[in-house]
Design a protein around this nucleic acid. Structure first.
Length: 559
RNA sequence: GCCCCCGUAGCUCAGUGGAUAGAGCAUCGGACUUCUAAUCCGCAGGUCGCAGGUUCGAAUCCUGCCGGGGGCGCCA
């Protein structure tokens, strides 16, 4: 019996109690899903619910009295061995060993589908993340969002949502001009401009632009007048830089459905259209020669310029048009992941959303993630694009590999700033928890191979009543909670929850492995005990594989 | 000055109002002639930053303060 099935059984008990008057509350007062949790202490049974305490006030009954009434009915449910009322009104439920163990078969039969749900079915979600400027290689901060964003996308999809991964390609404006001037200067053998970019990659790309032009039989860009030369370096340089970022992300197992060019919003007239819409809605005014959006009407702390007094659209104008474009493409939920250094945008972005008549927090969600700090020898490392002292995605992946990098970045809450010690990472020691989880998976695969070699076959028998050891109860519980953890991670936009849960599953598996043996000794006969344990072994393997898949981390068969 | 995030075991961090606050790492002591010891078992380790409040119940929610980090342009 899965916790979800137990939850349904509880709800049926509640419904019947309402119908015959035992529980004097209206039917719509019942929670849609009854929360069933694994109690902290083993003495409190297999599962517990606080539903009696939640309903006590509405029913006008003492929580314990209500719990007693429910306990009697719940005890009648097939598979439920014992129900106790404890503390202020908890219902502590103990399952028959066989009913609890049945989960192993459920998981194996569900296979890759175990952990998937329809919790977010019908939602069309646009998830924008990374969106780094193509003025340099993807740095460590962007890599965090690549890992977290892609994992979140996988979990949203597993929960039934229709998800588009989107990268906003900022190829318009002053930063790109600075990038182009830096390339040009380097090609001429000059120092980088005061406000430009430095680093070896600038030299590499400048050389590549020259080589490409020569190979194509085009005139040497350096022979052009400065304007033309800068444009040649801009066009080709951005293309090269972006291709490099895209390739690095692909190698990181992150592929976007849409790479959206900011420039296209300006060329297509989408910016003007968005401003016109806001003007019609009466949220635009002019002052000091500029055009403003009255975001203070919607909670922002100051109004925002959308067209500067020199006639150029401000940066936010692109955001207005981009948001509108996403909505018009049919996404009812626009989710944007930003670094903590952009948290100041939330107010204006939410105000913009409201100005268009949408609901902030529903149609537009902004997820803020804290920064990644780099540490070497215990000293914080200052990074500067201009000086070229940046740690790129390739540096990180080269040091620890994709699996460890993705896992390390995805296992912490995005609210938490994280320190990555470069020495530790470059030593590639075994301190990374990804190995703990992957090793557990490799072990399940090894056990299954050995069992197969010795003639243990699942299809020959399944007797869940033999799964009576405490390590089996614990492992079954961890496996049983997996679907709820995935759905919760998707709904809360907190993919790290899945990683943490996998660590618990792995821990429970390792303990079980030490206590119970799947394969027969020597000339021992194969019994249902071996077969049933193989079901549990394989169920664990499935959960670890599904979970690692949600994190974009491989599940090795051998290590 | 205003805004955001953080403060939990020696370290790194889990814990979206529930029971005796957990894990990994580090330290110390144990367990491999039979499924992988990248594992497991045990010991030890805590004023959940401080002070109030909300309620049957607060690490969790609210207010104030302290400490650390980040941000507040007609830049992008």
């Amino acid at each position: 019996m899965t916790p979800a099935e137990l939850s349904e059984a509880l709800r049926a008990v509640l419904t019947s109690a309402v119908e015959d008057g035992t529980l004097p509350v209206p039917a719509d007062a019942l929670p849609a899903t009854v929360t069933v949790e694994r109690p902290r202490s083993r003495e409190h049974g297999d599962w517990a619910t606080n539903v009696a305490m939640q309903l006590a006030k509405k029913a006008g009954m003492p929580p314990r009295a209500l719990a007693e009434a429910l306990a009697a009915r719940l005890g009648e449910v097939p598979g439920v061995a014992k129900v106790d009322v404890a503390g202020p009104g908890f219902l502590n439920i103990t399952l028959d060993t066989a009913a609890a163990g049945g989960l192993a078969r459920t998981v194996v039969e569900a296979g890759e589908r175990y952990g998937r749900s329809e919790a977010l079915a019908g939602q069309r979600i646009n998830l924008e993340f990374v969106s780094a400027n193509p003025t340099g290689p993807l740095h460590i901060g962007g890599v965090r969002w690549a890992a977290v964003g892609d994992s979140l996308a996988r979990m949203l999809e597993a929960s039934g949502a229709d998800v588009a991964r989107e990268y906003y390609f900022n190829d318009h404006g002053a930063q790109i001009d600075r990038f182009a001037r830096s390339l040009l200067a380097r090609a001429k053998g000059e120092d980088a401009p005061e406000d430009g970019y430095g680093g070896q990659y600038i030299a590499d790309i400048a050389a590549q632009v020259l080589a490409d032009a020569a190979a194509a039989g085009e005139p040497d860009p350096l022979s052009l007048p400065d304007d033309g030369a800068q444009e040649a370096f801009r066009a080709r340089g951005v293309e090269l830089m972006f291709a490099e970022i895209k390739q690095a992300l692909h190698d990181f197992r992150v592929d976007f459905d849409v790479y959206f060019h900011e420039d296209s919003l300006h060329r297509s007239g989408a910016v003007e259209k968005a401003i016109a819409r806001l003007r019609e809605l009466g949220h635009v005014f002019e002052a000091d020669g500029a055009i403003w959006l009255r975001t203070t009407d919607f909670g922002d702390d100051r109004d925002r310029v959308i067209v500067r007094s020199d006639g150029m659209p401000a940066y936010i104008a692109g955001d207005l048009a981009y948001y509108l474009d996403k909505r018009e493409r049919g996404f009812d939920r626009v989710v944007i992941m930003l670094g903590a250094d952009h948290h100041g945008y939330i107010g204006r972005m939410m105000a913009m959303c409201a100005a268009f008549g949408d609901t902030p927090g529903v149609n537009l969600e902004i997820l803020i993630g804290q920064l990644v700090n780099l540490v070497r020898d215990g000293e914080p490392l200052r990074m500067s694009k201009r000086a070229g002292t940046i740690v790129t995605i390739d540096d990180l992946v080269g040091a620890v590999g994709v699996d460890a990098a993705r896992y390390a970045l995805a296992r912490s809450s995005a609210d938490q700033s994280i320190d990555l010690d470069l020495d530790l990472l470059s030593r590639s020691t075994n301190e990374n928890p990804v190995f703990y989880v992957q090793y557990a998976h490799a072990r399940t695969a090894n056990v299954a191979r050995n069992a197969g070699d010795l003639g243990v076959r699942r299809e020959d028998g399944f007797d869940p009543s033999v799964l009576d050891h405490v390590s089996e109860s614990t492992l079954l519980a961890k496996i049983g909670e997996f679907p709820r953890v995935v759905a919760q991670a998707a709904e809360l936009r907190e993919p790290h929850r899945v990683a943490r849960h996998l660590e618990e599953v792995a821990g429970a598996y390792h303990k079980w492995y030490d206590q119970r043996r799947v394969t027969p000794f020597g000339d021992e006969d194969v019994t249902d005990t071996h077969r049933t344990r193989l079901w549990l072994n394989d169920a664990t393997r499935q959960v670890l594989a599904n979970g690692l898949g949600l994190l974009g981390v491989t599940a090795p068969e051998r290590m």
